[in-house]
Computed example of a mutant assay.
Amino acid sequence: MDAGLKRELEAKVYAGERLSREDGVALYETDDLAWLGGLAHHVRTKKNGDVVHFNVNRHLNMTNVCSASCAYCSFQRKPGEKDAYTMRIEEAVRLAKAMENDQLTELHIVNGLHPTLPWRYYPRSLRELKKALPDVALKCFTATEIHWFEKISGLSASEILDELIDAGLESLTGGGAEIFDWEVRQHIVDHDTHWEDWSRIHRLAHSKGLKTPATMLYGHIEEPRHRVDHVLRLRELQDETGGFQVFIPLRYQHDFHDSKDGIIRNRLQARTTMATGADMIKTFAVSRLLFDNVPHVKVFWVMHGLDGAQLMLNHGADDMDGSVVEYKITHDADGFGTPNKLSREDLLELIRDAGFRPVERNTRYETIREYDGPVADRRESPQLMRF
């Protein structure tokens, strides 16, 4: 990138002007990560100050049985396969209640597209979970799952969302987005929920008063232009509805370790690696700069490693997803040795160590509790960062 273009882009960012598609592609092409990170950090600080948000949540995957076989996915199992499981609702309630003493505020539920489970299983699950944990927000189901529920129930997405909201649903999850551009999507996704239905369902959720996250799976076979296109589609939808609270870049997980049965389900494995640290920085920074109308950018530490997550907090992210517990969808594929769970104290230490002030939030991004900021001399000596 030449000096003139850098000055032009920097001027637009500091003036608060909306960046274009061409601007986004140009930003990905720069090798000046300090400059790019500085711009993203400026925007992140202008929107959120020195705060890093977090919550105390539990990820719960009630079934890994799935009718789809997406190319990147090692989570899914077919009926009868080894390690295939479907929880009884009572089991899901037991697992959720196990964190009750940790002052859990959110359950995050995503499942496979089970070919035979009846539609009624899902609202009944939410009702029982809400009965057991009335003060815990239910953040459940991707747009892909809602589209699947349309097929198995014969109901419209509007009717499905109304019943789920009545059962306690407070937010959809952001999954199923992957990469929207068909040039890439046709090679990675094995279901028929694409941009048209994904956006339709989130638009409908927003119209019913739900606030939702949006995601992007990056670092596989896509190119930077596909990432820019993905973000701009979401930015346009946000202009229309205002319903997205947070954007979450999800780092594609190359399977360093095969699943227990030895079957390689990730069909991208032979021709992919993983996003480098530099690519992570570019993705978070450019996303923060393009998303002028979404308040938060979240780093999911399970997919980026603990050190990588801390670094992203200095390159556009202001939110670090939570205590997690047993994130089955990608955890077995990572190469970081990340734990299954971080406690509230672990998260406070990570956030302070990165130089920020922790704020515990709920699903609606309302403040639950503010904490003291970092110790002033914590980073007097250089700290090792690993990717």
Rank of each mutant, 00 (worst) to 15 (best):
K211P: 04
G112R: 01
H304S: 15
A177M: 13
C140H: 03
R21Q: 06
H304Y: 15
K211C: 08
S323I: 03
H187A: 04
D353Q: 13
L133E: 15
G175N: 04
G175E: 02
K46S: 02
H59D: 12
D166R: 11
F336I: 04
V110T: 14
K208A: 09
M280E: 08
H304M: 11
L161K: 09
G37V: 01
R235C: 06
G80S: 07
A11N: 05
Q245D: 13
S67I: 14
L348T: 02
E81C: 03
I248E: 00
L133A: 12
D292S: 14
R265S: 03
V136F: 00
L113P: 04
W182M: 14
S207K: 07
A333P: 01
P295A: 05
H53I: 01
F256A: 02
E22I: 00
D31K: 09
A40P: 10
A205W: 05
L133T: 06
N293A: 01
Y371T: 00
I146H: 02
C73P: 13
Y121W: 10
A270W: 13
N314C: 05
I281N: 05
E345T: 14
A92H: 07
E22N: 07
D261S: 08
T30C: 05
K260I: 02
A278Y: 14
W301S: 13
Q310R: 13
Q245L: 13
G219H: 08
Q186I: 04
H315N: 15
T173E: 06
L172M: 04
K211G: 07
P123A: 14
P295R: 10
K341M: 06
E100I: 09
G174D: 02
E29M: 12
L104G: 06
L250I: 14
A143S: 15
I264Q: 09
E222F: 08
S199G: 07
D50P: 11
E90L: 06
R386Q: 07
S158K: 15
R203H: 11
L36D: 13
G168M: 02
P374D: 00
I201R: 13
G16E: 05
R271T: 12
K211Y: 10
E178M: 01
L129S: 05
T45W: 03
H315L: 06
V189S: 03
I165C: 02
T283G: 07
V286W: 12
S156Q: 09
V286F: 10
R344G: 06
V228M: 03
E128G: 07
D32T: 00
E196I: 08
T173P: 09
A137G: 11
K6L: 15
S259P: 03
R44H: 08
E145S: 00
G337W: 07
R288L: 03
W301G: 14
M385N: 08
D255C: 01
Q253L: 05
A376Y: 15
N314G: 09
Q383C: 12
F141N: 00
E17K: 12
A317F: 06
E128T: 02
E128C: 08
T105F: 05
Q238W: 03
